[in-house]
């Protein structure tokens, strides 16, 4: 040990190598990080290409029912009720959306049922940001379009930086949300109290995961994991 300690002490003259190595390591790490950040940015831009031919529908007014877990509610008062619980980052919710989103959209637009979207946020910070933006969109009567566009570009990985304020505003711009009030709402997180209320209502409704659907307050127990539209439609008709 003494020998080694001595050896290093006397290698004081080798300071140059040390600083050279420190400098090179810093350079490699910085270059690598910049390369990764730039790569991710361009990948995010590519994923927006899907939205280039996104068609915006007519606005649909919704209400936020604080008594009902701050759900985004359409067609209040209709005979049948569909409650949908989802998290913007949940990949299975995206599967559900791609399979049955159109059917649900038709229920809302044709006023066939009361539809309540419970936007959850238990998958991390970016779910919170995305849920906030969803509430902002609902304020401008564009929840349906925003929701659809958001799932179309949903990143494979959770909390990987995709649902940033900048990108959420961009998603909004494809969904017809270009007003300053929407941008402010997303930037400031104006709806975080609703987001929290929705999250906290999970226990009350005994919702354990997403997506969860209730028809007239009764849990939909699907038999197939693929969310087959036939099964969903039949379950709705039977309710």
């Amino acid at each position: 040990m003494a020998k080694q300690a001595k050896a290093t002490k006397s290698s004081g003259g080798d300071n140059f190598t040390r600083w050279l190595v420190i400098g090179m390591v810093t350079l490699v790490v910085a270059t690598g990080a910049i390369f990764s950040v730039v790569g991710e940015k361009s990948k995010a831009n590519e994923s927006f290409a899907i939205l280039s031919d996104f068609k915006v529908g007519p606005t649909v007014v919704s209400t936020v029912d604080d008594a009902n877990g701050a759900g985004i509610t359409f067609n209040n008062g209709a005979a049948k009720t569909v409650d949908i619980w989802e998290d913007p980052q949940c990949p299975v919710c995206n599967t559900f959306e791609q399979a049955n989103g159109e059917f649900v959209e038709d229920l809302v637009r044709a006023k066939k049922a009361k539809v309540v979207y419970h936007v959850l946020s238990f998958l991390g910070n970016e779910s919170v940001s995305a849920a906030n933006a969803a509430y902002c969109a609902a304020d401008e009567a564009r929840y349906l379009d925003f929701h659809k566009a958001m799932y179309l570009v949903q990143p494979v990985l959770e909390n990987s930086g995709f649902y940033s304020t900048e990108n959420l505003i961009k998603i909004g711009s494809y969904a017809g949300l270009t007003s300053q009030s929407f941008i402010d709402c997303v930037t400031k997180g104006s709806k975080l109290d609703k987001v929290r209320a929705a999250y906290e209502s999970m226990g009350k409704y005994n919702v354990q995961g997403t997506p969860t659907v209730f028809f007239n307050g009764k849990l939909w127990e699907r038999k197939n994991n693929a969310f087959l539209p036939e099964e969903f439609t039949a379950a709705f008709e039977a309710s």
Partner: peptide
């Protein structure tokens, strides 16, 4: 993106 998500 995976690495960033893992740290987050």
């Amino acid at each position: 993106s995976e690495s960033a998500g893992a740290v987050a």
